[in-house]
Design a protein around this nucleic acid. Structure first.
Lengths: 151, 151
DNA sequence: GCCATTCCCTACAAATCCGATAGGCTTTAT
DNA sequence: ATAAAGCCTATCGGATTTGTAGGGAATGGC
């Protein structure tokens, strides 16, 4: 399970990236729209800023804007910021490798070998799919499916 | 990251399944071989027994034996016992579904849609690969690779 | 210059989970 | 009877999660 923090971060990013070019979105507005505790969200947005994903403007008419284009920000990158390494075992993380202290022979470890398969499969998805991708696909079936039910 | 508990459980299962047919393995022996805290391992083996994966014999010459064949026990099943649902979001778990309270429209949730992809990819692997599979492949290249280095 | 608005930063706290440790009870083979 | 093994429950320190709280700093409008 991913953390609330990561989920909130993704929600916020999707909202900010969906804004018209150059228009800022405030933390208050994001919190209101998505029912996220405001002060908690502030911390999250700050982390995203420190990671070089968002830019902020202070004062009245301030808010947050994308610093990098949405289609360069993968789900994996965001997850790593808030939930740490994606790898199921420390010895499988390229970014944050750590040997399993009790493992005698890494190359022959059967557990490592099996998890490497599953990790590779999910990493492939998480590191290739971006905020931009999600946003584009979200618009493909806009309200049609909904309205058809009502009508 | 998977928990130590799950990792220990998998180690133990691989060891027990590797025993000659019908021969029991004691918790003490498993703990010694794999450097697992003994009393902690006992709890884990107990859980595996309650889950119907292991069978136990008490008293002198006791120990643990597989109850179900090793090739019917997937990595996913073991993970679920110790670490809970594999799904990255509660709303994606078939087994332990829970609605995200703050999600307005599940079918149109972009986060859910993206994680469904990655989840499907890893679930595919974890639920299909079994303890038996791992054991068979582990024997394919036994000591050859190792000895060749030395020689 | 003042004020409201907004982001920035740090501290703290309750709850839960993780990774054991501990102690004793029950069953079984010899 | 005894030793060896599994069975069961309680406890515990530390880390992590999920916030809450309070205020400081910048900015724009008046």
């Amino acid at each position: 399970m991913i953390s609330n923090k990561a989920k909130y971060a993704l929600r916020a990013l999707l909202a900010i990236a969906a804004q018209p070019e150059g228009e800022a979105l405030t933390s208050t507005e994001i919190a209101r729209r998505h029912a996220i505790p405001h002060k908690f969200l502030e911390q999250i947005l700050l982390d995203l800023k420190k990671s070089g994903i968002l830019e902020s403007r202070r004062g009245k008419a301030g808010g947050y804007v994308m610093l990098r284009p949405a289609d360069t920000i993968s789900f994996g990158e965001v997850l790593r910021i808030f939930d740490g390494p994606l790898a199921p075992l420390p010895c499988l993380s390229r970014n944050a490798y750590r040997r399993c202290e009790d493992c005698e022979n890494e190359a022959r470890c059967m557990i490592r070998r099996e998890f490497a398969r599953s990790y590779e499969a999910s990493r492939q998805v998480l590191d290739s799919r971006t905020i931009g991708d999600a946003l584009n696909e979200g618009q493909e079936l806009p309200l049609a499916a909904q309205n058809r039910r009502v009508g």
